[in-house]
Amino acid sequence: MTHPDPYDLPLSVVEALAPVTRRLVLNRRGSTVWEVGNERGRWAVKLGYPIAATRDWPAQPWTALAPAREGAVLRQITCDAVLYGVWEHGTWNVQPWREGRNLYDLWEPCRSGETPMTPGLAHAAACAEALAALHAQGWVHGDIQPAHFIIGPGGAHLIDLALACGGEVPAEYDFPYRGCLVHYESPEISRSVLASGTAVPTMQGDMYALGASLLISATGRRHVAYPDDAPRTVQRQAIVDSPHRPVTVPGVLGKLIEQMLSPVPADRPTSAEVYNELNQQRW
């Protein structure tokens, strides 16, 4: 469910960027994203606001804080110019626009069967490299999914770091980690969320999510089968109780996905190991 009318840029953002162009990119529950152009370049502007409760969904106040939390994270892990602040409905951030296509869209020909395309090892290696760079800084992403890998001429960029953990976050913008998009959630994260409502994101959880992301992007199939319309608790219980679907991706990539989807976190390869293996296979 989206906000009926996308929120426009707050005055504080307009004053900071002096926009020349703007394009609505996303308008969904709790978040509106604009692409803004000015004399200095192109920028992604994220606006967060709370999600009201509905018959099917509880209220989600944390979405109002997510842009500022992500801004605080980005300032610690990148040299890019990043701004963040508050507006009347929540918080916002401004970060450089990443040009490219996300992993799921890039591998659409693999899923459609319209062309004899197999998943590109170069794309998978670029994703693993981006995640390895984050892990090398001591950070966990916490929300790995295909849409968060933007692959362009310069490699892959990891975006949407609002749930990342690994450093200090201003208390006024912080909130508990309650899991990620269930399609990519590891069994141990799902188990913790079911038991307590929260979890601790880990690098091993990121690796499971990377395996699930590569699997669904290549095959269109989620890592575990569960009904689309089932409550989150039912979907998470399926992840805890059920083995992952068979990995039908051929070659070394399929072998690595199988390892990343291990139910035992310690048995999963690291992001650096996955990158090194894939990078060797590319040549």
Rank of each mutant, 00 (worst) to 15 (best):
V247N: 03
R23D: 07
R98D: 00
L163P: 11
V36A: 07
S262Q: 11
P4M: 13
S213Q: 08
I239E: 00
A53E: 14
D80L: 03
A209F: 01
A195R: 15
A128Q: 06
E15R: 15
P67G: 01
V249D: 00
V82S: 00
T21V: 07
A125C: 13
G205W: 00
C79Y: 00
M117H: 14
I77K: 07
E188S: 06
L210W: 03
T233D: 10
A16S: 15
V73H: 03
L163N: 05
G155K: 11
A126M: 08
T91R: 02
L256I: 15
G30F: 06
M203L: 14
A195E: 14
G71M: 01
T198Q: 10
Y104S: 04
I151D: 01
S262R: 14
N38Y: 08
A230I: 06
G220I: 00
G138F: 05
D80K: 12
L47W: 02
V73D: 00
G142Y: 04
S271A: 15
Y184F: 15
C110R: 09
N27Y: 12
E277Y: 02
L83H: 14
L163G: 04
P250F: 05
L134S: 10
A132L: 11
R40Q: 13
R23M: 11
G37M: 05
N276L: 15
S196M: 10
V249Y: 01
L83G: 09
P50G: 08
L158Y: 01
R222Y: 03
A66Y: 00
W34G: 06
S242D: 10
G254D: 04
L26D: 08
L161D: 02
G152H: 07
